[in-house]
Amino acid sequence: MLIINNLVKNYGKFKAVDNLSLEIGKGHIYGFVGANGAGKTTTMKIVAGLLKPTSGSVVVAGMDILKYPESYKNKIGYMPDFFGVYDDLKVPEYMDFYAGVYGIEKSQRAKLTDELLELVNLTEKKDFYVDNLSRGMKQRLCLARSLIHNPELLILDEPASGLDPKARVEMKEVLKELKDLGKTIIISSHILPELAELCTSIGIIEKGKMVVSGTIEEIMQKTSQKRVIRVKVLSELEGAVKILKEQPSIGTVNVHNDYLEADFHGTNENMAEILKTAIKNEIPVVSFTEVDRNIESVFMHLIGGEGNEN
């Protein structure tokens, strides 16, 4: 459904997207994960036809978006991270406007609007002006708008951003329904557990580059060759880093505020040996544990978390 090949987007000397490739099959839900400024929105805007790539190709439903810059847009539905609405329109009028934009016959619009409002649980707000809807409702209305022409690929950029917990749950329910309807979706989010629950596969992007991509199981497998140990110390952080880096079974060491995380390639015996060495060198160790592997920790580890790599 979506094939991105060696996509590059430069803003002057800054590389927003750097040789990014990914492939999403029909009916799949692809989670696009990355920190702010990692290049998620830029990639999504390129797929939505709002930005021109510096190089590379994007193929949607068999159509190269540079060769068919207008006609391919009927195949996609796009919901940006920040968007506005026409406040002075009523909810059905808002839907009717976009139905008109997509060339849907007037006779079909009312039925279509009713179905989509029901899908996003806004039927009871039908007589409201868009201005009077809450943020979460506006998000769901925008989602309904992006579905009005029955697109083959949905591009959802942070659909749950800025929502309160209740609105997030409601949005998640709608996305689950779309999943059940067999829609192909590319979705970016910061809420990783939610993505893990929804997505058939995910891609982690950092500084415009795809760090890892695949099903959640594949990613866990790829990254589980490296075990991660977390060491919390009272003081002597520098000393602890030095000792860890001297160990042959330790790879990269990430320093966080009051703890360290290190890639570990050894056995349990090696791990016990490292703890022994730290205590022998009078490092005040508070805790020494192996990090439980979930998608969030994989993400934090792959992008280096908030700490500095040493």
Binding site: A48, G49, L50, E70, S71, K73, N74, I76, Y78, P80, F83, G84, V85, Y86, Y98, V101, Y102, G103, C142, R145
Partner: peptide, 9 residues
């Protein structure tokens, strides 16, 4: 609202 118009055909 411009992007929502421009991403259509």
């Amino acid at each position: 609202t411009l992007d929502l118009l421009l991403c259509t055909s």
